[in-house]
């Protein structure tokens, strides 16, 4: 079951890479949040650790409800619903993604052989999700999709923690959740600033800031 969640998570990461529309990215991000919450719940049910239940609830609240709502409002306010962009050809990006996945899987193989938890084989997938999100951030130009990439990366980290070590201590988890929330707010403000400055959210314009 946890394997299935892991696979779905990976699937969603790939879907994010191949998706061009910003709104659809938010949908995918939401789906990723749901999967993450479910998988945390599964781990909680499997191990009976109480803090995992909290963690699942927190994930659900933050990543399925709060963040998508914020992002959606942000996108509407910025008026970038239909913007489609990608720096590289999608197929090329996906092939690179595939190689990244192989790399992650290969890297995780010896580690997971040492681990004893029931969920050890998912470590590779978590790593792959992190790297894929990174890849997405690299290949995108628009600020909003970069933020989504950033959030997806955090999802990957969280999944790694949840599956490999049965979650981080509660306090740290809260801290990270808060951080993410604040980060999104700050970045939201940032977007407006960027747009006012350049009339666009295209990050290529930032290149003009460098000193000649």
């Amino acid at each position: 079951m946890i394997n299935l969640c892991a696979a779905v998570l990976l699937l969603l990461s790939f879907a994010m890479i191949s998706q061009r529309r910003t709104v659809a990215l938010v949908d995918l991000f939401t789906a990723q949040g749901v999967t993450l919450a479910v998988s945390t719940l599964v781990v909680a049910l499997g191990t009976g650790q109480r803090h995992m239940y909290y963690s699942a609830a927190l994930t659900f609240a933050l990543k399925v409800i709060v963040l998508p709502v914020i992002l959606r409002r942000l996108i509407r306010r910025l008026g970038v619903q239909w913007e489609a962009e990608s720096r590289l050809d999608v197929t090329v990006t996906m092939i690179i993604g595939l190689l990244v996945v192989i790399f992650a899987f290969g890297l995780a193989e010896p580690i997971s052989a040492l681990a004893t938890t029931v969920t050890r084989s998912t470590l590779g997938i978590a790593l792959a999700v992190v790297l894929l999100s990174f890849l997405m951030m690299i290949t995108r130009r628009k600020a909003v999709s970069q933020v989504i990439g950033f959030l997806a990366m955090e999802n990957g980290l969280f999944f790694a923690a949840a599956s490999a070590t049965y979650g981080m201590p509660m306090l740290i988890e809260f801290g990270i959740a808060l951080d993410v929330l604040v980060a999104v707010f700050v970045l939201g403000v940032f977007f407006f600033q960027i747009r006012e400055q350049f009339d666009s959210l295209d990050l290529q314009h930032l290149e003009s800031l460098k000193e000649k």
Binding site: A7, L11, V90, M94, I95, T122, I125
Partner: peptide, 22 residues
């Protein structure tokens, strides 16, 4: 082609996931 390349990559990914998760 993009549509089908996606199919192709998903299929390959399926194989990889099988190899990882067994």
């Amino acid at each position: 082609p993009e549509f089908l390349a996606t199919a192709f990559l998903f299929a390959v990914l399926g194989m990889l996931v099988h190899l990882l998760l067994g």
